[in-house]
């Protein structure tokens, strides 16, 4: 030990670890900046006066601070955008509850032993088939149309009833529950419904929360499905509407082009719209991050 000390071995080790710590933190800082700077840029633009933005003078701090970009949507598009928000909130809330319930409901029998539930293997084969292969778009569109679900919010919710990945997640969790608890409930005369509702569900809150978050994010961000199934603009959820406003096919065609409004169809209102769309997600997410990470990790270990 002494000899090592004398030879400066530990000092060398410490110096090296200091150097590598600096390298690690530098890279981490760089990557974190890459991830966050675009948001700060958008935020700055959304609070800047349109002409400042158009002139390219806004980078990370707002110039000529104004709420006008946000106020623009209140004045001009509150009807269209408000309806889009309500549609999205509706499909997110109802869709998530529907997905969580149905996922758990199917996962429960699948998690029981072969003796108790004999259809486990064939159903799992179907689920894995659906996990591996994507639905062919055209036949999918035609079948949903044949079910008479065109232009309904139900099409968006029903088509997301169960996502195979979520099912496998909950299934893994159910399988890990201690069998003694079920036995205890059964001795008290509980049926399988009771086991599911009073034992399995309350114990699986964490994994169900993960599913709820995954599903909530999916429903909030839904884009392709409404493009397929929704025709009328009254039912259109947020993302397609945001796109149409961004691409200038929203108000600009209907609106008065001679309108002297400095906020009309500018770069800065696009930034404001981005912030409006992100904010609900950004506000909720940090509180739920725990479940999100956990769900991903369980999924990783499972696969």
């Amino acid at each position: 030990m002494k000899m090592l000390k004398k030879s400066g071995y530990f000092r060398k080790l410490r110096r090296e670890s200091l150097r590598s710590t600096i390298v690690v933190y530098t890279f981490l800082l760089l990557i974190t900046l890459l991830m966050i700077l675009p948001f700060l840029h958008e935020l700055a633009k959304s609070f800047s006066y349109p002409t400042e933005v158009e002139a390219g003078r806004v980078s990370l701090l707002p110039k000529r601070f104004t709420f006008g970009n946000y106020y623009y949507f209140w004045r001009k598009q509150s009807e269209q955008l408000g309806r889009a928000f309500l549609n999205t909130i509706y499909i997110t809330v109802v869709g998530t509850a529907w997905t969580v319930f149905n996922t758990a409901l199917l996962a429960f029998p699948l998690s029981r032993s072969k003796k108790e539930f004999r259809l486990g293997v064939p159903i799992l084969m179907i689920v894995i088939f659906c996990f591996v292969f994507q639905r062919p778009v055209i036949p999918y569109f035609l079948t949903v149309k044949a079910y008479g679900l065109m232009d309904t919010r139900a099409a968006l919710i029903l088509s997301h009833t169960i996502v195979p990945f979520y099912l496998l997640l909950v299934l893994t969790f159910f399988r890990g529950l201690p069998e003694d608890l079920f036995d205890a409930c059964r001795i008290d005369g509980g049926s399988d419904f009771h086991l599911f509702w009073h034992v399995a569900l309350p114990l699986s809150k964490a994994s169900l929360a993960s599913v709820a978050i995954f599903s909530g994010v999916t429903m909030w961000n839904l884009f392709f499905h409404p493009m397929l199934f929704i025709r009328s603009s009254d039912l259109m959820p947020l993302q397609p509407i945001v796109r149409s406003i961004m691409r200038g096919t929203g108000d600009v065609l209907k609106g008065n082009l001679l309108d002297n409004d400095p906020f009309r169809e500018t770069e800065s209102i696009k930034s404001a719209l981005i912030m409006l769309t992100i904010i609900p997600v950004a506000v909720v997410y940090p509180f739920l991050q725990k479940y999100f990470t956990k769900g991903t990790m369980v999924g990783a270990i499972k696969s």
Partner: peptide, 12 residues
């Protein structure tokens, strides 16, 4: 158990 599996299977 079999009743519980119906909605999910129907969906798939």
């Amino acid at each position: 158990l079999y009743i519980m599996a119906i909605p999910g299977v129907l969906f798939f």
